[in-house]
Write a protein that binds this DNA or RNA. Structure first.
Lengths: 236, 236
DNA sequence: CCTACCGATCGGTAGG
DNA sequence: CCTACCGATCGGTAGG
């Protein structure tokens, strides 16, 4: 299980006082302190809510996470998340939909960078490596929530997120079909895709970056398991 | 997602009257009706609670399922599940621990029936086919709950269930190591085991018995993906 | 984004 | 296993 950080510093609900008594003397307009770029930027607070919520959703589950938990994790008071999201459900949906959209874009850039000349095997390797980055890399978090909280979405939300997810998965088919044509993949590509995503996605529940393999080594092992190496000196 | 049955007949909380007015005339002692074997057998009601609870835990999640949901699903009133389980958490643990114990026993019987002479490939095929039965077969339900609600267990419960789960998984190693020795499995056996369980376990989220492959066909596809066929006419 | 608050629901229990 | 109930918590909101 993805062991969440040991309770990220249990932020006391008492928010920072707008005008701390022991403030170092700086020229500042009186009255309400000027909003810093960070405070002002609505998107920044919104993103922070999504980040902390994703972490909590992943470690405790969506239903077991209260909006108060989330508010406390970002240093807000209980009602304040509703300034950024109209409901807890909308927050979950935003995490999944925006996370999936970013993953899809990132994957397509990765494929473009690879170019057209790459072999199916090289295409798959790049896709696998990129997917591990999405799942387990330092900026990960949103996609694992999608994988494990699918049932917490409403039907309409599911349909919406599924559109992006389907596009993400569809991009794997050319590589798998190419490998099958070359005899390097034995299963039917459509079924292989399901099994392969399962194998990779499951890593969220057991992978630990500290001990064990790097993401590169993980991708290598996955390729070894799923595909056979091209025959020696075969140049079709 | 494993689409739960369309709300199993929303059992009205009004329990069956002990002495239905329109009872067919049968010789029966007056007063409280004699408990039938089914009513009497504590284990039977207990098992029914576990079955319905597992179905609900799987479709809605543990935290989103109330003990009242479960009671209603078996036709009990809200407080009655606590006659059989000391807490909601104990019910979840029972589902996982007893489900896992049954799965382990069933797997070991399957391996014993196969005998010692079987090739590693045949061993793995039998294990894969059996695991699909556990995950997707007509009597399935408990293990999928374990896979998707691990984080809802307390630390002590996790440790307890992990003991059985580890034994279940350990039984796969001889087959995987044998295949590796024969050059029919390219990845490291310990890593292959993690990937393979991921691939199989994930099927709970997409498999539908109606349309699509049989469990036999599924096992065949999995074997084709993970292992290479033994060389023609190779008799080591 | 905070304060103060509401109605609903939940896990659990006493007592029969 | 039912009845009646409790304290706690939760998602959400009005009003500032």
């Amino acid at each position: 299980m993805p062991s969440a950080k040991p309770s990220s510093s249990a932020a006391p609900p008492a928010g920072a006082n707008p005008q701390p008594a022991a403030d170092p003397p700086q020229r500042r307009p009186r009255g309400r302190p000027r909003k810093t770029a960070e405070d002002q930027d609505d998107g920044n607070r919104r993103r922070k809510l999504m980040d902390k919520a994703a972490r909590l959703f992943l470690s405790k589950g969506y239903a077991a996470t209260s909006t108060r938990d989330i508010a406390a994790a970002v240093g807000m008071h209980s009602g304040s998340p509703y300034y950024h999201f109209k409901s807890k459900s909308a927050l979950l949906h935003a995490v999944m939909a925006e996370g999936m959209a970013e993953a899809l874009q990132s994957q397509q850039l990765t494929l473009q960078a690879l170019g057209d000349g790459a072999s199916p095997r090289e295409q798959l390797r790049v896709l696998v490596r990129h997917h591990f980055e999405i799942l387990l890399g330092p900026r990960s978090g949103f996609i694992p929530v999608m994988l494990y909280e699918w049932r917490s979405l409403t039907a309409a939300q599911r349909k919406d997120v599924a559109r992006i997810k389907d596009a993400y998965e569809a991009d794997w088919m050319p590589a798998l079909q190419g490998l099958a044509r070359q005899g390097l993949l034995q299963a039917e590509p459509a079924v292989a895709r399901l099994f392969i995503f399962g194998a990779l996605n499951w890593s969220v529940s057991w992978y630990s970056p500290k001990k064990g393999l790097s993401l590169d080594a993980l991708a290598e092992q996955a390729m070894a398991l799923f595909t056979r190496a091209p025959a020696e000196g075969a140049h079709p």
